[in-house]
Design a protein around this nucleic acid. Structure first.
Ligand SMILES: Nc1ccn([C@H]2C[C@H](O)[C@@H](COP(=O)(O)OP(=O)(O)OP(=O)(O)O)O2)c(=O)n1
Ligand SMILES: [Mg+2]
Ligand SMILES: [Mg+2]
Length: 627
DNA sequence: ACGGATCGAACA
DNA sequence: TTGTTCGAT
């Protein structure tokens, strides 16, 4: 029913709100005497005074920077107040900051769709609220406008003399274009929200108001602290023309470096010189169009309605001499991490009625024997069973299987330099459904405990059928949920029904994302053939050289290739197609029940693909090679 | 190999 | 679907 706006002109009102030196503010609220003083938050004081992770604006004036050592900071700012991150179970404990972030979100999520983008920032879609305001109480007289709103920075305004006056005039211009009027309303709403945040939490924040997320994010950082910035469409061109590529979100890493070094692109505006095809050729289909769009200030990325994190993780590093070298030491630290994780997912369940379904372990290690102590410790996951002891038990198993794989057959001396676990696949538990009745009279918490207590066989975690039936909610949508499952291998080929099932599930999920550009086509069997890849050479150094397939040894299975030009062949024996490359007449030859799915996918894919980075993948597990 | 602890997303 | 890599805060 809800059809996404075309949005090609950018008529949404999007805000990005980012807290000012957030951890510092949290600590200053705890210790008000620190307010106004140059302050920084450090974690782990023992080595060189710890590392700074947040710096107050007073301290920034002295040149104090994040990632400085405490001792360094004291050199440039002798009066700096260093506050340590709380420590619990031998590791940094960020719960106070998470909790403070939640306070803020609960206020900012009241006027429109809200997306938690990090511990201290959110995106807001204020389109509806702004349109309502424009209809009902349009800003006409200065007296009616929030004073804070009138202090906004408006990009592109003539500038020099009397900024204040110009902004005031901008807000009440009756001859402004509709877009600008909407932004003005958005800015008034944001000013109000920021006032509410200050009143309720004592925290200041800064914000950007624009027609999409990318520009709003850019704007929020332009004037800090405790200010807000508006980006009218008319200001976009000049803004991007002088913006160094590295300042743009997503271009701060290797991609941005490649743009500079390989294309000579120094500002985002420099990208305008390149055709979409040229960018696609070098950086891939999706990234290419994404780059082409952002050069023009276009981004259709929508504000997801999600105010809670999608995963909980905790970890600790053991650098240099602190590296763990015994199983007992690893076990001990794992236990600490598991305690914290258990606490946090339990809190999530109690507060939000959500249940996590997957436990994942990451580690880094090296062999003390080799001169080149390279590290590649495989991550492992399994179904998550609630309860500290269960989690500890499973985490240790995951580590052990990872370690055996890491060591190969020779058992060498090893060192572990980091351990991390995380809880993912977190799902809402619907209030009303048969599953709730099953748990009648019990708290969700005790029901989950019982489910894991009726001792599941002590086998290695592999399947979650029991878990799924006991915990996973009955579907409100008719989409099957897999709590945890292992990748389907060729020699373990699923039945035909099963394959179709996967197909439908995946396609619905992807369609909901409202964006897609790639059809992923599994042959299901046949691992020996290598196929042509006309995928662009990768810009990322790490991808280079791992691309083992550049020539065509064999034709594609009949019917598959005729779907359209192959965009990329994957290591998992599937082929990817771009939506516009698919020959519509060939779709008719596909199995009936699949045709509808493919057509629906192509439709949504073509609609949204140009405005958002990334791809949706259409999984088709064919039953045989000649499907 | 002292820039740690977390998160989300694309990719293979 | 799992596991890896990238980028971010
Ligand atoms: N590399 C980083 C970056 C940030 N943070 C934490 C501490 C910050 O307080 C918080 C928010 O990050 P920001 O990038 O928003 O920075 P600040 O809020 O501290 O400052 P600003 O006022 O510039 O937003 O996240 C962190 O632990 N490690
Ligand atoms: Mg911030
Ligand atoms: Mg931030």
């Amino acid at each position: 029913m809800p059809i996404p706006r075309p949005d090609l002109q950018g008529d949404r009102v999007i805000a990005h709100v980012d807290m000012d030196c957030f951890y510092v503010q949290v600590e200053q609220r705890k210790q008000p005497k620190l307010r106004g003083l140059p302050t920084a938050v450090v974690q782990y004081n023992d080595w060189k005074g710890g590392a700074l992770i947040a710096v107050s604006y007073e301290a920034r004036k002295f040149g104090v920077k994040r990632s400085m050592r405490g001792a360094e900071a004291e050199m440039v700012c002798p009066n700096i107040q260093l506050v340590q991150v709380p420590v619990a179970r031998g590791k940094a404990d960020l719960n106070a900051y998470r909790s403070a972030g939640s306070e803020v979100v609960s206020i900012l999520s009241t006027k429109g769709r809200c997306e938690r983008a990090s511990i201290d920032e959110v995106y807001l879609d204020l389109t509806d609220a702004a349109e309502s305001m424009l209809l009902e109480t349009p800003p006409e007289a200065l007296e009616d406008i929030d004073e804070e709103a009138l202090k906004s920075h408006v990009l592109g305004l003539s500038g020099d003399e009397d900024r204040e006056k110009n902004v005031q005039r901008w807000f009440i211009r009756s001859d402004a274009i509709h877009q600008d009027k909407l932004l003005a309303c958005g800015a008034i709403i944001v000013a109000h929200l920021r006032g509410e945040v200050l009143k309720e939490t004592e925290f200041t924040c800064s914000a950007g108001i624009a027609h999409n997320k990318m520009l709003a994010k850019l704007a929020s950082g332009m004037h800090k602290p405790a200010q807000q910035t508006i980006v009218p469409s008319s200001a976009v061109k000049d803004l991007l023309a002088s913006l160094p590529v590295k300042k743009m979100k997503q271009l701060g890493g290797k991609l941005g470096s490649s743009l500079q070094n390989d294309l000579g692109v120094n500002t985002v505006g420099d990208l305008l010189k390149f055709s979409e095809e040229k960018l696609q050729e070098r950086y891939g289909f999706n990234t290419g169009t994404w780059l082409w769009n952002i050069a023009r200030g276009i981004s259709g990325d929508e504000v997801k309605g999600r105010v809670l994190p999608k995963s909980h993780g905790c970890g600790k590093t053991f650098p240099g001499p602190r590296a763990l070298k015994t199983a007992a030491a690893v076990e001990s630290w794992l236990n600490q991490l598991c305690e914290e994780l258990s606490e946090r997912i339990q809190l999530d369940m109690d507060q939000n009625k959500r249940v996590a379904h997957t436990l994942t372990l990451h580690a880094r290690a090296f062999k003390s024997s080799d001169v080149e102590p390279h590290k590649k410790f495989p991550s492992k996951s399994c179904p998550l069973r609630y309860g500290i002891n269960k989690i500890q038990e499973d985490a240790k198993k995951l580590f052990d299987t990872g370690l055996r794989e890491f060591l190969g057959s020779h058992s060498n001396a090893w060192r572990v330099t980091s351990l991390a676990i995380s809880a993912g696949k977190i799902l809402d538990t619907p209030r009303t459904s048969s599953i709730s009745r099953f748990f009648q009279g019990k708290s969700l918490s005790s029901a989950i405990s019982d489910a894991s207590n009726d001792d599941i066989q002590d086998d290695a975690p592999s399947s979650s059928i029991g878990c799924k039936e006991n915990i996973v909610p009955e579907s409100d949508n008719d989409e099957e949920v897999f709590a945890h499952g292992k990748y389907v291998k060729e020699d373990d080929a699923p039945s035909k029904d099963r394959k179709i099932d996967v197909l439908c599930t995946q396609s619905r999920k992807q369609k909901d994302k409202g964006n897609g550009s790639i059809l992923k086509f599994f042959s299901g069997t046949n691992t020996s053939t290598k196929h042509a890849s006309n995928a662009p050479s990768s810009w990322s150094e790490s991808h280079k050289g791992q691309d083992q397939r550049d020539h065509q040894e064999e034709c594609l299975v009949d019917g598959h290739s005729r779907l359209g030009k192959i965009s990329n062949q994957q290591r998992d024996d599937s082929w990817n197609f771009n939506a516009e490359d698919i020959d519509p007449s060939v779709i008719d030859e596909l199995p009936q029940e699949i045709q509808r799915e493919v057509r629906g996918w192509i439709c949504s894919s073509k609609r949204a693909k140009t405005t958002k980075r990334g791809s949706s993948i259409f999984h088709y597990f064919s039953t045989d090679d000649n499907a």
